[in-house]
């Protein structure tokens, strides 16, 4: 069976969930071969094998952390040359898309970004994308070269599918361009203990209606009662009430959880662009005319300072 390369997003060997989802999709097209780079690369093998990787190509080098994007492109290109895969799948992070794009150009292939689903087709994999702030769904395929496709988080279920996952060294020669952009400093983001926004099953967001940084405690309390991630609208972020890393929307994160709860958010097109594909949508807003109500499965017209604490209390009571 044809092999499908899957680029592994990991932190010091801990595989992030979107990569495991890619393995599910890769198995629809062929046999997944994973490519893990940088510090802890070999430590990814167990998790990847459990989810279907027949092989794990690894390479450790300081260049992956010390220089931006290009070393990873060099490595993925070496993997493509070694494996001649039927397709290359990369998680749709900002960096993932840049890596995939440069790879596609180098190997003379077309690229599809931000797929939300993937199926095998007669003429190669067919990718589903959600465009124009999720108001349209398109199906596309790549008409030239080895399909390179980036896939959004939460596009497939993580499935156990034990495979060999044998670790092999990948031989990589870095290009001259690899050391072009130096990373001179790095401040890791502090963990909040809450789930990752793009990976969470439930997201609870606050907007301008939250009216102050201190009031975000109400949003966080609701999130914690549900084990959810916290999101924010750009208005709340621009006001300095919540970090930009939590922004949901066109210029923030795009989320697709099972449940999205919007509090004090009007539902502007740029916000919708980042959350409209959520399975169930709930909103609390004091304005009955707010456009967010056009999207909801359940909406409460009311003051969030009354509704949200009551909801949190109720959930905590039910959960005991």
């Amino acid at each position: 069976m044809a092999e499908v390369l899957v680029y592994v997003d990991h932190v010091d060997g801990a595989v992030r969930k979107p990569t495991l989802e890619l393995l599910t999709l890769a198995r629809r097209i062929g046999e997944p071969v994973a490519v893990a780079l940088g510090n802890g690369a070999a430590d990814t093998a167990a998790a990847l094998a459990e989810h279907g990787a027949v092989k794990v190509l690894t390479h450790e080098a300081s260049e992956y952390a010390d220089y931006l994007v290009v070393p990873k492109v060099d490595a993925l290109q070496a993997a493509v040359a070694a494996v001649s895969p039927a397709a290359v799948l990369v998680p749709s992070s900002a960096e993932g898309k840049e890596i995939a794009a440069r790879l596609a150009l180098r190997i003379g292939s077309g690229i599809i970004t931000d797929a939300v689903d993937l199926e095998a087709g007669d003429e190669g994999p067919v990718a589903t994308q959600s465009v124009f702030a999720a108001s349209f769904t398109t199906k596309s395929r790549i008409s030239r070269g080895t399909p390179v496709i980036t896939v959004k988080p939460n596009s497939a279920a993580v499935e156990a599918a034990p495979a060999a996952g044998s670790v092999e060294d990948l031989a990589v020669t870095f290009s001259e361009a690899a050391t072009g952009t130096k990373v001179t400093g790095r401040t890791p983001r502090e963990s909040t203990g809450r789930p990752e926004l793009t990976e969470a099953a439930i997201v609870v967001s606050g907007g301008r209606g939250v009216n102050g940084a201190e009031n975000f405690a109400i949003i966080e309390a609701l999130a914690d009662s549900l084990g959810a991630a916290v999101g924010a609208s750009r208005a709340a972020v621009d006001a300095g009430w919540y970090p930009h890393t939590n922004q949901v929307g066109q210029t923030g994160k795009s989320v697709s959880p099972q449940l999205y709860i919007a509090n004090g958010i009007s539902g502007a097109i740029q916000h919708r662009a980042g959350m409209q594909t959520s399975k169930t949508i709930v909103a609390v807003n004091k304005d009955a005319e707010a456009p967010i109500f056009d999207l909801v499965d359940y909406g409460v017209v009311g003051d969030l300072f009354d509704v949200v604490p009551q909801l949190t209390q109720e959930i905590n009571a039910i959960n005991g």
Binding site: A288, F293, V300, V301
Partner: peptide, 20 residues
């Protein structure tokens, strides 16, 4: 190098329940 094969408007979400 890519080909869009189809584009369909996303079906409108079915109207939800709204309470005051």
């Amino acid at each position: 190098w890519t080909k869009v094969e189809s584009a369909a408007e996303r079906p409108a979400r079915t109207a939800g329940t709204i309470v005051k």
